[in-house]
Design a binder for these strands. Structure first.
Lengths: 338, 338
DNA sequence: ATGAAAGCGCTAACAC
DNA sequence: GTGTTAGCGCTTTCAT
């Protein structure tokens, strides 16, 4: 039968038949393998577009043993943050350049065991030690890249990290030079490398200066209520506090009303800074000093590393670093009256 | 040769051989097709897990003529917004329940013509009329669902919409009952149905009351600078303005400092409200009244509709509606002194 | 410069 | 209840 499939998408054979060439030639022509003559190449491509041909990705994947997609895990609990949105787009940027798809993986739905082979590799943004999906992913048969080290057992194929210790020290130095003598830290939980490192750095910094460690740890995804309670507790712990560093994303903004309520003036008798920059910090009154984690660049770097790993251009266990910066704003500039 | 592949993932044949059954039986056993005896089913599943078998998704897709993934388009320019992050998770929730993957599609990279057949269908969050990728996607061979109608030519297979007109009217009524007599609108550009509808509604509302249409249109993705300029322009246009409704996501928070600068007291002589709720609105001082678009539910509804379309459970051209709500906060509650 | 044939890993029709 | 066989649409040897 020479009947053309009326339903379903156009296949390579159909294009080949219409162009009067073989499957092979059609395939080669469409992919510029440099095997066919210019004349037939043009013939084939034109008939392909005429027929509205579009290659079947599943068949390609099956043959090439590559899915053409990478997985991206974002912790459910951190959904709210602008940081992750940017991170995601950084990953997508890099993938798109290589014609790869990005498949989202959340911690919501634990898939059937071993069912995650629809991707060639996986990027994990800040893997929480306690997340079972993360552990499953890291144990997968495909390469994995994490943003920041994983604090648990499993070892990813690659890691992209930033020097958070150095930046926090720089921030603390900045506060000190702005006149603060008693800084406090609203810390993030130590289930991520980032949260952990900030805590350690702060402790060490205080220790070196014989200062009390004024710190409260706060779980990821805590509500504004919790933030406020923690800030109140810190203020109560030592009324001499004259600087507050907020690690959890969004906590600095949520802290503002509490500080005012307590009669403190931000940028005046109290300096305020955040460890994760985001647009609300820029718009708040006063604008709040923050560490810029360059989330989009981080996402791009992770994807980049993953592709290098897949191409064999980077060895298993590669660690790359990503520079981050400090953005000084009015919240840490003492107004003249103080 | 009876050599087992040492490299590469374990395949179905290998499991079958190890279990001493045929390919088919192994396949049936692993998918509980109800064809095999309980005894062999257990035998097969146990050997599968022992060998670390994981099905090849590409092969499954090829055979089943379904990719097992849906595409999700989020406009590049709206990246920053918390709304989209939630929307995305709503889609992912639904997909995960059906064991589907979600592939992100951005407007950054225009793919080779007809190259987007790695998905069974596509969800588009607020499609911008001017986005070429959106047009390409809507012309794709797979079903498409948009959140809000598309203002351009192409017609999606399904639409999920909310009654933004009614909600804006409710908001305006709320402002009026709180004492506002001269409301202004910082509008979103009319390249989306949502932005368009808000503008029309506001114009009609003002017309019915013989009020001047105090409005400025602002492009998507505008910086805080632009927001501030627009707010200043509105205040200058009519000093009698006593209420400001901000449509673009994030603009209400950015407007706050300008309003204060102009000597206006938010929640006092000026009422402020936003058309897109987000956590900064909750934390700002005062907290800002907003329309809650239920983004997560919206994402879920879109995915739901797409799956119904794919399963033939909903006809082409289905439109479903999604309820939205108003969250009243202090920014629209006149303090007693006024 | 082009074709023919094999086969990626899986599922579904058809046997027994 | 289970095995055999035939493809899904493509890329890749190996022959011309």
């Amino acid at each position: 039968m020479l009947v053309v499939n009326t339903d379903g998408p156009v296949t390579l054979v159909e294009v080949a038949r219409a162009a009067g060439v073989s499957k092979t030639t059609a395939s080669d022509a469409l992919r510029n393998s440099g095997r066919v003559s210019e004349r037939t190449r043009k013939l084939v491509t034109s008939t392909a577009t005429r027929l509205g041909y579009s290659p079947n990705a599943s068949a390609q994947s099956l043959r090439r043993a590559s899915t053409g997609a990478i997985g991206l895990h974002v912790p459910e609990v951190l959904t709210r943050s602008e940081y992750y949105m940017s991170f995601v787009f950084g990953v997508v940027d890099q993938a798109a350049e290589r014609n790869y798809d990005v498949t989202l993986i959340t911690s919501k739905h634990v898939p059937a065991p071993g069912a995650f082979h629809r991707v060639d590799g996986i990027v994990l943004g800040d893997p929480l030690e306690t997340d079972p999906v993360v552990r499953g992913l890291l144990g997968a048969a495909v390469p994995t890249v994490t943003c920041e080290r994983f604090t648990g057992e499993a070892v990813p194929s690659g890691v992209v990290r930033s020097d958070h210790a150095a930046l926090l020290e720089r921030l603390l130095a900045h506060l000190r030079s702005a006149g603060a003598r008693r800084p406090a830290l609203l810390a993030s939980s130590s289930t991520t490398d980032w949260g952990n490192r900030l805590q350690q750095t702060f402790r060490a910094w205080c220790g070196e200066r014989d200062l009390p460690v004024l710190m409260r740890e706060q779980a990821f995804g805590s509500s504004a209520e919790v933030v406020r309670d923690n800030v109140r507790a810190l203020l109560a712990a030592d009324p001499a506090i004259d600087a507050l560093v907020c690690a959890p994303d969004g906590s600095a903004v949520a802290a503002l009303p509490v500080l005012r309520e307590a009669g403190r003036e931000v940028g005046g008798d109290l300096l305020l800074a955040a460890c994760v920059d985001s647009s609300p910090l820029l718009h708040s009154d006063p604008p709040i000093t923050a560490i810029d984690l360059h989330p989009r660049a981080a996402g791009a770097a992770c994807a980049q590393l993953l592709f290098d790993l897949l191409a064999g251009k980077a060895p298993e266990g590669t660690e790359r670093s990503l520079p981050i910066g400090l953005v000084e704003r009015r919240s840490t500039t003492r107004s003249s009256t103080f």
